[in-house]
């Protein structure tokens, strides 16, 4: 319950901030208030908080010295929300995502997912890495099938779900291909399919498009948005691409480094599908960019 309050209070803070920028008449700083102006959209009822990140810190021992990577991270994420985390290299955004994934159980504070503290990985939380991390000796199909290893889903259903997932990411016909036979963008789609095939509640994306060329990246961002709307799952995207963060996120969490901490959270109240060329989109993007230049 307390977490819900935090969200509400945050909402209030954001609203206050918006009002202040409104009154200062700084046009470029202006953000759209929910349900105002030409971008009309239905006000969603607030979904319950599914992930609470409370006072999280993380440090490494580096040749005897303590290196603080994350400090005082507080963030509540509601079910079905799309959160983008942007920051420069080394701000700890990937570390934070790895903690949420449960790849590293050693941290201070609490990350509570659906009521229990995260200490290890879980099939309910899917992750996609910057590199596709497909196994070169398994075909596209076998790579996705591997995700079922720890489940008791029957064989026939596994195959059917893999087929459906391959179709969903638009790779029908490539089931028997080895990773070296398909392009980087296609490999990353397979990796997304592998993460989604278990129908996780939470999808974690660690700079999934950073290694792709600009055109492929645009296409995959579109597709990711489509998939997210299709599956309706909670998603955390870590990226250093501000446009990507604004394009996909309901909220953009801006992080700064030394030690890694949250600088501010920018809500993106634009209707979907979003159009990058609109003035409002550019305003929000420029606003976030002011944190980096």
């Amino acid at each position: 319950m307390s977490s819900l309050n935090t969200v509400l209070s945050f909402k209030r803070d954001a609203a206050l901030k918006e009002e202040s920028t409104d009154s200062s008449l700084a046009g470029s700083q202006q953000r759209v208030r929910p349900g105002s102006g030409e971008f009309q959209q239905p006000v969603k009822p607030l979904a319950p908080v599914t992930l609470e990140i409370k006072n999280v810190e993380k440090s490494y021992q580096l040749s005897g010295e303590r290196l603080q990577v994350l400090a005082g991270i507080n963030l509540d994420i509601r079910a079905g929300e799309f959160i983008s985390i942007v920051g420069a290299s080394g701000c700890g955004k990937s570390t934070l995502l790895r903690l949420v994934a449960g790849l590293d159980g050693q941290y201070g504070g609490d990350i509570v997912y659906q009521g229990s503290r995260i200490t290890g990985t879980d099939l309910d939380r899917g992750i996609v890495f910057q590199e596709h991390r497909l196994f070169p000796w398994l075909t596209v199909e076998a790579n996705i099938l591997l995700a079922f290893s720890a489940t008791d889903v029957p064989k026939a259903e596994r195959r059917a779900r893999v087929q459906a997932q391959i179709k969903l990411v638009g790779l029908s016909g490539f089931e028997k291909a080895y990773p070296h036979q398909i392009s980087g963008g296609m490999s990353q789609r397979v990796a997304i399919a592998r993460a989604l095939v278990l129908r996780p509640q939470l999808l974690l994306l660690d700079e999934p498009f950073a290694a792709l060329d600009a055109l492929t990246r645009l296409k995959l961002q579109q597709e990711l948005q489509r998939l997210w709307e299709h599956e309706g799952l909670t998603t955390i995207l870590v990226t250093h691409d501000v446009e990507e963060a604004v394009f996909l996120g309901d909220r953009v969490v801006v992080m700064e480094s030394h030690p890694g901490r949250i600088k501010r959270i920018v809500p993106v109240d634009l209707p979907r599908p979003r159009v990058r060329s609109t003035l409002e989109f550019q305003r929000i993007k420029d606003d976030v960019l002011t944190d980096f230049v």
């Binding site: 490494y60 021992q61 580096l62 040749s63 290196l67 290299s89 080394g90 570390t95 790895r98």
Partner: peptide
């Protein structure tokens, strides 16, 4: 980045 750091930390752990 974080990856390489964590590798080093296992060294100092020894």
């Amino acid at each position: 980045m974080a990856y390489s750091v964590s590798i080093m930390s296992t060294h100092t752990l020894s």
